[in-house]
């Protein structure tokens, strides 16, 4: 980590979602400030500022971190992944798809951090138990959902990713217009009602 005195500014280089960036930072800046204000990647949210709520979770060299606790200077030369990098080539990540299908999203403020924590889990452990999932997201607070739909979504995404084989991390359906509108069960139900018309 570079030595910079209080108040002094310096430029750091690192990778965000695969692309190289250079940002001017001060010693006081946190990674979340660089992402949200410096790079305007506002998908990453701040919920508590003390590393308790997980809303600011991003991946640093593939590991989940609270970006409110990481000094910006520490990311020099490293790789950061945020929610904006989950969808690839206009195609949703299987986790994003599953969150939509399982109504794992309510107000949506914890969602980006929750997705990043889940993405880190599935890279480490492609076949997690419900208990593994609960543990992996236990640092991510959600006040709306009660966590079940989130855990079901992660289970479902894991199944889908295993079925698609390795290297399928960003191979969901395209969006829009392919984003799901109704769950699979209801789609069948609606179609059967349609054909009965």
């Amino acid at each position: 980590m570079r030595e910079v005195g209080p108040g002094a500014r310096t430029t750091i280089s690192f990778k965000v979602n695969g692309g190289a960036v250079e940002v001017e930072v001060s010693a006081e800046d946190r990674l979340i400030d660089v992402l949200r204000e410096g790079l305007r990647l506002t998908g990453t949210k701040e919920g508590c500022g003390i590393g308790e709520c997980g809303a600011c979770t991003v991946l640093l060299d593939g590991k989940p971190v609270n970006s409110c606790l990481v000094p910006a200077l520490q990311v020099e030369g490293r790789e950061v992944e945020t929610v904006e990098g989950l969808a690839k080539d206009g195609r949703l990540h299987p986790l994003q798809e599953a969150f939509i299908e399982h109504t794992a999203v309510q107000c949506g403020f914890c969602t980006p951090g929750m997705l990043m924590a889940a993405a880190a889990l599935l890279r480490e452990n492609p076949d997690p138990t419900r208990e593994d999932i609960a543990r992996a997201i236990s640092g991510n607070l959600c006040r709306c959902t009660g966590y079940h739909q989130i855990m079901s979504a992660i289970e479902s995404a894991a199944r889908r990713m295993r079925a698609q084989g390795p290297g399928a991390s960003g191979a969901g359906t395209s969006e829009p217009p392919g984003a799901p509108v109704v769950s699979e069960a209801s789609r069948r139900e609606i179609h059967s009602r349609d054909s009965a018309d």
């Binding site: 990647l41 989950l86 949506g108 997705l115 969006e175 984003a179 109704v182 209801s186």
Partner: peptide
């Protein structure tokens, strides 16, 4: 019907 939230895509992408 069990309809997916209309705001979910924007929320899961961080958009």
């Amino acid at each position: 019907a069990r309809v997916c939230r209309i705001d979910a895509v924007d929320k899961v992408t961080g958009r």
